[in-house]
Amino acid sequence: MDKIELRNITKAYAKNPPVIENLNLKISEGSSTVLLGPSGCGKSTILRMIAGLEKETAGELLIDGKNVSGVEPGDRHVAMVFQNYALYPTMNVKENIEFGLKNLRIPKAEREKRIQEIAKMVGLGEYLSRKPQQLSGGQRQRVALARAIVKKPAVFLMDEPLSNLDAKLRNQIRTDLIELYRKLNATFVYVTHDQVEAMSMGTDIVLLEKGEIRQIGSPPEIYGKPENVFTARFIGSPSMNILSAEELKRADLPVPPKAKYVGFRPEKASIGGREKAPRENEVALQGTILAREMLGDQILYKVQSPFGVFHVKSFDLQMLEYGTNSVLIKNSDLFYFDEEENRMVC
């Protein structure tokens, strides 16, 4: 069942050209849908429209099959976690969590029970009487989560909730969020520009660019079957190598005639190792190593070839010398894209 549905949604600010035009999107109940894209792609706007904080210029927004245009944010049964946490600075942790419940006139006994439950769940028990300024970034994030969870909403909206945290804490809270998602059994809509976060958090990923959906799919689909150059480049770190098909054709490599770009993932190529000629199902590219980066469990090479510069990720920790090397890629790991940058299925 679709929990949230956007039908032909258009959003424009004042008299400016629309940031989102005729967008259609279905978010199914119980999913963890990640809206992913570079800044300015409209992902936050979509989230804020679902929350009711922004009004759609045209189109219909449905929650549980009902049009919610004109329904106040507080009445949409959604909770939101903000990037900067947006905790009420003058209230202590408990009051922060309680504020929404009080406004809903939930009896005191019930409020107390819920707060104790939540505090235990997110590990805030001993901080209930502290003010937000006295908490660390991670703790504030937890208060923000608790404030959302305590209302028992049907939908959790998360606007880049981890981007204000340092890298270590981000990984930790990311894991906590996944656990939470499984426990709560609610619908998550999660906005991020970080593809790693998207891959790990999402059951569905909606990849956006300039207010348009580029691809929707599960993390493996988005990674393994990119439908266009944008998706291919956006997902994966480092991103997919995209080379000009023309150059490859000139070098007599087998490329479908209509292809304009050829792509392969850095981790699917192997460098060095065998000096022999490529096997039948492989292509070989010659290139010089421009830079090597030792990343601990892998080595990243930046390679200059006649077809352009590309990256190769090697799990062989024996570092190669600078100089000319051959790079081998299986034919099945090559992606071809046509003139419109869409993938060609061969």
């Binding site: 929350a51 904080l53 944010p73 939101m80 947006a86 600075p89 929404g100």
Partner: peptide
């Protein structure tokens, strides 16, 4: 965001 959080808090 603080105002928006309050609106979501009814």
């Amino acid at each position: 965001e603080i105002v928006e959080a309050a609106r979501l808090d009814h």
